[in-house]
Design a protein around this nucleic acid. Structure first.
Lengths: 281, 281
DNA sequence: TAATTCATTTCGTGC
DNA sequence: GCACGAAGTGAATTA
């Protein structure tokens, strides 16, 4: 019955006139349906930037949340779009025209159809959320449940620890009492990730005290060459580790534990630097 | 004829059976058409990460370049997808099933429909490219045509100048003969852009010679507070400037070349540091 | 609302 | 093919 009702309300038209096309689009917007329009169109955008796209065949999608997407025959990304929360208007100036506005930032998208091949408007219900594994958060949990994956004797003390330069992924101490900043990446990293880690280490050094030694460890599946050079130059370290993609991953495989490239020595004694894992500060 | 054939060849079906739905999808794939399937489906993905999405109403788009998109009723981004170049297969196991594969990295997307509300397949021709203004490249051209926007006496010497840490947006000299690294951003920037600039300045200092002074200037519409602090800490500078959003700037190419080629002399002593604008190295 | 960072980022360019 | 950085990045989280 669910599908029967849904289907009965689906509106479609092949090669509709401008008025019929507009009627379906307007009804779809009013009834919070998902609308797709196929046809030949020009597209203009003005806002954070500005663009023009001359006439061609495209798929235009209007979502009930105010999203607009213009898709050409190639590319994963829409050639033009409008984000959720926008307001749509339609007119028929010769052909169907769909306009979409928003404020903050002020942006406007205009799609002018010279011909509409097909229009569909359908009701949508979707209660489900995506369940995703293999994220950076999964990598963090993997390390928190087995800190020796980073290094024997490593003790996590906080996640998301705040520094003047931003939040550190994992903050902890090594078996010599040195402060340790761990930066996590779910995939192969370049120089940007090294700079990021270096920023945190520098900020934490200033935040703790001058003579405090702070080690920085980058945890990622792999490094580019230039990232490795930059890492050495900054005296930072690297551990090769991937997020668990399949949930059967209870086997860390010692081969995934790479040696730490450099080492540091000092003693950490600041109690304020030690906070609970997942603690606020 | 093309358009007439195009319209006449559009395939649609409302509430098709599995076999009819599959027939249209397969035909659409074979004929390199754009295909949309609307219906209730489960989605599974496995590859760089892995995900599961339980049953709900969604729009599935298959592009002739091998792209697959699964869109829910909200969000600008697809909830699941497969990039261009993938291979699609369809089966009917109870309901329509669409699978998409690729190698490098190995990835697989499976969409299982329990009900198909509507299917469309249509031919698409689109010769047009997007014309976009307000990009970082526009900002670069603006500066090259009027270098004093950065600073009186600034002379650009190269764009995309290579350093061990990556390519510098604009490399030049100031009126005192100091080397200048300019990093461009089309929008408000945070600490990451400052780190990037600092990386280039450090690399260039090592690349030139130790006693060489290298200034770093960040050009962007605005800065966050922490970016400003980090900029000060690294001894870097900031110039507020936006890319030209409106294309009333008709001046660029000839005046740009003129401005660059006239500056043949320099106080920068390293000849390797001085290269032509848009030159190779 | 602004700021910061992650992302199955995608996309283009150069080597 | 990999590496690097831009993007009208989008999206989530937190202050």
């Amino acid at each position: 019955m669910e599908s029967g009702v849904s289907a009965s309300k689906t509106l479609t038209a092949t090669l509709p006139g401008s008025d019929r096309a507009r009627e379906i689009v307007e009804t779809g917007i009013d009834e919070e349906m998902m609308v797709t329009v196929f046809g030949r169109c020009r597209v203009e955008y003005d806002g954070r930037a500005s663009s023009t796209l001359e006439s061609g065949d495209r798929l235009v999608v209007l979502k009930p949340d105010g999203t607009v997407l213009v898709h050409t025959e190639e590319g994963q990304q829409p050639v033009n779009w409008q984000p959720p929360g926008c307001t749509q208007e339609t007119t028929t100036d010769d052909g169907l025209v769909v306009q979409s506005y928003r404020d903050n930032p002020e942006e406007e998208l205009t799609v002018e159809f010279s011909a509409v091949t097909h229009v569909v408007a359908y009701h949508v219900t979707d209660e489900q959320d995506l369940s995703l594994q293999g994220t950076e958060e999964d990598l963090r949990e993997r390390i928190l449940s087995e800190p020796s994956l980073v290094e024997d004797g490593f003790e996590p003390r906080a996640t998301e620890r705040e520094t003047p330069a931003g939040a550190v992924d994992i903050y902890g101490v090594d078996d010599s009492g040195n402060a340790v900043v761990v930066e996590l990446k779910r995939r192969r990293v370049g120089p940007d990730a090294v700079s990021q880690l270096n920023r945190y280490v520098g900020a934490l050094k200033r935040d703790l005290h001058a003579e405090m030694a702070v080690r920085g460890i980058l945890v990622a599946p792999s490094l580019t060459d230039s990232a490795h050079h930059l890492l050495d130059r900054h005296g930072l370290e690297y551990v090769s580790l991937s997020p668990p993609t399949n949930s059967y991953a209870v086997c860390p495989t010692s081969s995934t534990r790479a040696a730490i490239t450099t080492s540091a020595s000092a003693i950490v004694s600041s109690s304020s630097a030690v906070s609970a894992v997942n603690g606020t500060s």
